[in-house]
Amino acid sequence: MSATGDLDVRIAALHLHPVKSCGAIAVDEAVVIETGLEFDRAWAVVDERGVAVTQRDLPRMALIQPTLKHIDMVLRAPGMLALHVALDTVEAATQATVWNDTVKAYDMGDLAAQWFSDFLGRKLRTVRFDPEQRRLADARWTGPIEAETAFADAYPLLVASTAGLDELNRRLAASGQSPVTMQRFRANLVLDGLDANGEDHLDEIVFAAPEGPVRIKLVKPCDRCTVPDVDPATGTPGHAVGDALSAYRADARLDGAITFGMNAVILEGIEATLKTGMTGRATYKFA
């Protein structure tokens, strides 16, 4: 830490979640776009009313593993043939609802709909976010910043730290539970160089990408539901993670809600590339 109160951080991992609430992809680099990282939460699975479904209701979504290829996304799940979804092709225009936002989207066709319906046991369809749509994060936390997001719950980026995960796993071990991975928390940027949950206290981080600076601002603690208790290897829910977090992660900023990680918005750096191992300069938030 410098005398001015800022510190160096390092990108330990980058994660994309192409289909909302399905498996994550660890990548070596990712392009920053208006809604976060390119391809992150670009697709969603919706019910017959067009409402996005998640692991909260369908924990087996954790078993659906995407892979991004040059021209398509390949989805695999236990007992299913691979589904290929073209990156440059959509079908009919439609709408989708994420929480309180109903946005323009594109249906991905009957084959994708049948694949997800068969695996998850409900009548479902798959949609892609319309890039012409502007869905904005909650201004109560972003202030004057108009932060765009796609099918993420509410914000373009989620930031967490390796030290925060280490502390959770220390507590899990002390109670006789198995360690967990960051996959449970669905973070986009995982940082080294912080104390446990040190991201809670950061204001901005600047990364010197080859194309120019990438500036992100951490705006809201991420309150946690039941998803971190879904085992990504089996798709079965539990309660050990929630129990452990409840002992030390109640956040007064959210009226005592359990939090892990920080939601962030992009101030600068659209079309720049973030890479694992890249270092950045972080500043503290002072009330």
Rank of each mutant, 00 (worst) to 15 (best):
Q95R: 07
A96S: 04
T97L: 11
T97H: 00
N100V: 11
V103I: 09
K104R: 10
K104I: 14
Y106C: 08
D107K: 04
D107Y: 11
D118R: 15
F119A: 02
L120D: 06
K123D: 15
K123R: 15
L124A: 07
L124I: 04
R125N: 10
V127E: 12
V127Q: 09
R128D: 10
R128S: 13
P131N: 04
Q133I: 06
Q133Y: 09
R134H: 15
A137C: 12
D138T: 14
D138A: 08
D138V: 06
W141K: 14
W141F: 15
G143K: 11
G143D: 11
P144I: 14
I145W: 10
E146C: 13
F151D: 12
A152M: 11
P156E: 13
L157R: 03
L158Q: 03
L158H: 09
S161V: 08
S161F: 13
T162R: 14
T162W: 05
G164W: 12
G164D: 03
E167T: 14
E167H: 15
L168D: 11
N169W: 10
R170N: 15
L172T: 11
L172K: 00
A173S: 14
A174Y: 06
Q177Y: 03
P179H: 04
N188D: 10
N188I: 08
L189D: 02
L191I: 08
D192L: 07
G193P: 00
L194W: 03
L194R: 02
N197G: 09
G198W: 04
D200Q: 02
H201N: 05
E204I: 05
E204F: 09
I205P: 00
V206M: 01
F207W: 09
A208R: 07
A208E: 07
A209T: 04
A209W: 02
G212P: 12
P213N: 01
L218C: 11
V219K: 04
P221S: 13
P221K: 06
C222R: 02
C222F: 01
D223T: 14
V227L: 01
V227Q: 01
V227G: 05
V230N: 01
T234A: 13
G235T: 13
T236D: 15
G238E: 01
H239V: 09
G242D: 12
